[in-house]
Design a protein around this nucleic acid. Structure first.
Length: 271
DNA sequence: CGGACAACCTGGCGGC
DNA sequence: TGCCGCCAGGTTGTCC
């Protein structure tokens, strides 16, 4: 669920309520989601640390703390939100970690499927070191994209999903990007022509940027930090639209399984 | 190196 | 209404 636009939206929504706050208590209800720490060490180390900044890298939410770095990956069904103070602290049966704050509020990590992961490290590179380009950054130029893609073999859709190539794209945005670029998901990378590479590069940036502008896509579990749904699902051109008309040419969108992932594309526009 | 697949988990949904 | 099987946005490790 949460891909780059969703994670970015959550990080933006949390920033104001969290930067400057200090963790006063940490309760872990599902220890297996804490990576390389015993829950006791994790909680103990966090206590007393203040949040200096809050940002996103790939699909990770990164908390720069006074001493360490806390990284949270929401995987499929993870949510982060602030409860208490003014917000209603509603019942949530999927809360896995609660971070008590110095203003009486609490940051909750909620995750129905328990796939999300929380890392506490000294150097964030321990977690994000292998990630590829940050696709909306200035470093991700067309030349850099071409240089990197020139080193790769295989098929384009799995490559878009490879976080070591470009960080932040998931299954939904991969399908949407490929539709915008008019490239079929099963195209081999080494057969892409210059115009197609240009289209792909532009589509990666434009589609992710669009996702952020519409506050992400709420298919099932994703919610913004304030609990509101995103709007980008209204803008889907192919994802979840199998059998419906391609918005460009009217041809029915094909829904198939490719590379073990649900895949949607227009057989007429994309080649 | 690449592809296939299982594993990690639970909830929602369609079908009967 | 109830139960069952299947499907799901992600990532990692293993096997061939």
């Amino acid at each position: 669920m949460p891909e780059l636009p969703e994670v970015e939206t959550i990080a933006r929504g949390l920033r104001q309520g969290l930067v400057g706050r200090t963790f006063e208590s940490v309760i872990v209800y599902w220890p297996r989601q804490i990576v390389a720490e015993t829950p006791e060490t994790f909680a103990h180390r966090l206590k007393g640390q203040s949040i200096k900044n809050l940002r996103r890298r790939g699909k990770y939410i990164v908390f720069g703390l006074s001493v360490d770095v806390l990284l949270i990956h929401l995987r499929m069904t993870g949510r982060l939100y602030i409860a208490g103070v003014e917000t209603d602290a509603q019942e949530d049966r999927w809360v896995r970690v609660v971070f008590g704050l110095d203003n009486g509020g609490e940051l909750r990590f909620s995750d129905a499927r328990k796939f999300g992961r929380l890392h506490l490290v000294v150097d964030e590179q321990e977690v994000t070191g292998k990630l590829g380009f940050e696709p909306l950054s200035e470093e991700f130029t067309f030349d850099a994209f071409c240089a990197q893609i020139g080193k790769r073999r295989g098929v384009i859709k799995p490559l878009l999903l490879d976080q070591r190539f470009v960080a932040g794209i998931g299954n939904i945005y991969a399908d949407e990007i490929l539709w915008h670029a008019k490239v079929a998901p099963q195209r081999r990378v080494n057969t892409l022509e210059l115009q197609e590479l240009t289209n792909l590069y532009r589509a990666i940036r434009a589609t992710l940027q669009d996702g952020i502008e519409y506050a992400g896509a709420s298919i099932s579990w994703y919610r913004r930090a304030d609990g509101a749904v995103g709007e980008y699902q209204e803008r889907f051109r192919v994802y979840g639209r199998g059998g419906k008309a391609c918005p460009l040419c009217g041809t029915p969108i094909v829904r198939t399984t490719f590379g073990q992932r649900g895949t949607h594309f227009c057989p007429s526009c994309q080649s």
